[in-house]
Amino acid sequence: MDLMDSPEAFTALGEFLRSRRARLTPADVGLVSYGARRVPGLRREELAQLAGVSVTYYTRLEQGHSANASASVIDAISRALRLTDDEHAHLHDLAKPVPAKRRRTARPDHARAGLVQLIGAMDTVPAVVLGRRNEVLAWNRLGHLLLAGHCDFDAPARPADRPNLIRMLFLDPHTRELYPRRQEECRRAIAALRLIAGRHPDDTALAELIGELSMKSTEFAELWCEHPVHNCMTGTKQFQHPELGALTLQFEALHLPDGSGQRLMTYTAAPGSPSEAALTLLASLGGVLNAEEQLSGG
Rank of each mutant, 00 (worst) to 15 (best):
D5T: 11
E8W: 08
A9S: 14
F10D: 10
S19G: 01
R20I: 02
A22I: 00
L24V: 08
T25N: 03
T25D: 10
P26V: 13
P26G: 05
D28N: 12
V29T: 04
G30S: 05
L31C: 06
V32R: 12
A36R: 15
A36F: 11
V39M: 09
V39E: 07
P40K: 08
A51S: 14
V53H: 11
H65R: 15
H65I: 07
N68T: 12
A69F: 00
V73I: 14
A76S: 14
R79I: 07
L81K: 04
L83M: 01
H88N: 11
L91Q: 04
H92L: 14
P97V: 05
P99L: 04
A100F: 03
A100M: 11
A100H: 11
A100L: 14
R103M: 02
T105L: 12
T105M: 09
R107H: 10
A113C: 11
V116G: 05
I119N: 01
G120N: 13
M122D: 07
M122I: 00
D123K: 15
P126L: 05
P126D: 05
L130Q: 10
G131T: 00
R133M: 00
R141M: 05
L142G: 01
L142T: 00
L145T: 06
L146C: 00
L146H: 00
G149Q: 00
H150S: 12
H150N: 14
C151P: 02
A155N: 04
A155K: 14
A157I: 07
R158V: 15
P159N: 12
D161M: 12
P163Q: 13
I166W: 01
M168W: 09
L169E: 02
D172P: 04
T175V: 11
R176Y: 10
R176I: 02
L178V: 01
R182N: 04
Q183R: 15
E184W: 09
A189D: 05
A189E: 00
L193S: 01
R194V: 01
I196E: 12
A205Q: 15
L209S: 08
I210S: 02
M215R: 14
A221S: 13
A221N: 07
W224V: 00
H227M: 14
P228Q: 08
H230P: 07
N231S: 12
C232P: 04
G235F: 09
Q238G: 02
F239K: 00
H241Q: 08
H241G: 03
E243A: 13
A246R: 13
F251M: 06
E252F: 01
L254C: 05
H255P: 13
D258C: 00
G259C: 05
Q262C: 12
M265K: 04
T268K: 10
A269Q: 07
P274N: 11
P274C: 01
A277C: 06
L279S: 03
T280D: 13
L281K: 08
S284E: 15
N290C: 06
A291C: 08
A291I: 10
E293L: 13
E293T: 13
Q294K: 15
